[in-house]
């Protein structure tokens, strides 16, 4: 390309060090600029996506619709509650702005978690956030309950880094529809049973090849819903005892599947090995 550049001794120590330093500064600047220039738009997108997730859990058809307007229409109120049932805030926007992941990192008694109140076709629905661990990273979602606070009206799941085509399938409709109409704590052991085969009408059929993620979904229901024991038990007296029992027996091992970051191709290879050994 350029003749004069070839005369430069590109192998000298000084050149190498200066080159590396300049490169790092340029790349850092570029990344910082991109990040700060796009931050506002990204945050808006994330908030909109959250609204969409809540609406999908409420089985609202979002095709070609303005999700923000639908959210205003259906989700009528929201609360922030503590695990002992105290209501911290009644402000819908405050409750919406809470980062469930950060709250889950706090000690149990200090967490402030949102409950969304929605009205669909004149019926009262409650939407609760879920958060847990999949195979590779966090999974989260929303569960909408009927006004008996026991029957699942709809669910929506998201994930950060589950294997596409395997664990990543939990977001798909074919999987989320399997949760509709199930009764919480029907078996008394788990909030929702996710089983490998021969699911009965109260159990959910897991995804083949994604056992870890499917179990993660089950554990996510357990660990997330036990934080709403007071709320869930409040209306139907009969379920209070049951719900409390379950909360005690819920395993705290949700974090045991630590997210691992492996360098280079090993990440993909290990992922394959993990997923392969699952079934």
């Amino acid at each position: 390309m350029s003749q004069e550049k070839k005369k430069l001794n590109t192998d000298s120590n000084a050149y190498t060090i200066v080159y590396a330093a300049v490169m790092v500064v340029i790349v850092a600047l570029l990344l910082a600029l991109t990040s700060s220039a796009l931050k506002k738009r990204q945050d808006d997108n994330i908030a909109l996506d959250k609204k969409k997730q809540i609406l999908r859990a409420l089985n609202v058809n979002l095709d070609g619709q303005d999700a923000a307007a639908l959210y205003e229409q259906y989700v009528t109120a929201a609360q922030l509650v503590k695990i002992d049932g105290t209501v911290v805030s009644e402000d819908r926007d405050v409750a919406f702005g809470v980062d469930v992941a950060k709250e889950n990192a706090k000690p149990e008694t200090e967490r402030q978690l949102p409950i969304y109140f929605a009205t669909i076709d004149g019926q009262q629905k409650y939407v609760l956030p879920l958060r847990g661990a999949g195979l590779w990273g966090p999974i989260w979602g929303y569960v909408a309950l009927n006004d008996d606070k026991q029957t699942i009206f709809g669910v929506d799941f998201s994930h950060e880094s589950e294997t596409p085509g395997l664990g990543g399938e939990i977001t798909k409709e074919f999987f989320t529809t399997r949760f509709k109409g199930k009764t919480l704590y029907a078996s008394g052991e788990n909030a929702v049973e996710v089983v490998k085969s021969n699911a009965n009408d109260q159990q959910v059929d897991a995804i083949s090849g994604a056992t870890f993620t499917s179990n993660g979904v089950r554990d996510m229901f357990n660990s997330s819903l036990k934080q709403y024991v007071i709320f869930l038990g409040g209306i139907s007296e009969g379920s209070t005892v049951e719900a409390n029992d379950t909360a005690d027996s819920t395993e705290g091992a949700i974090d045991s599947e630590a997210t691992q970051v492996m360098p280079c191709c090993n990440a993909a290879t290990a992922e394959i090995a993990e997923e392969a050994s699952n079934d």
């Binding site: 550049k5 070839k6 430069l8 590109t10 192998d11 190498t16 080159y19 590396a20």
Partner: peptide, 8 residues
């Protein structure tokens, strides 16, 4: 390509 130091 012509500016990159071979060692890094």
């Amino acid at each position: 390509r012509n500016t990159i130091p071979m060692r890094i």
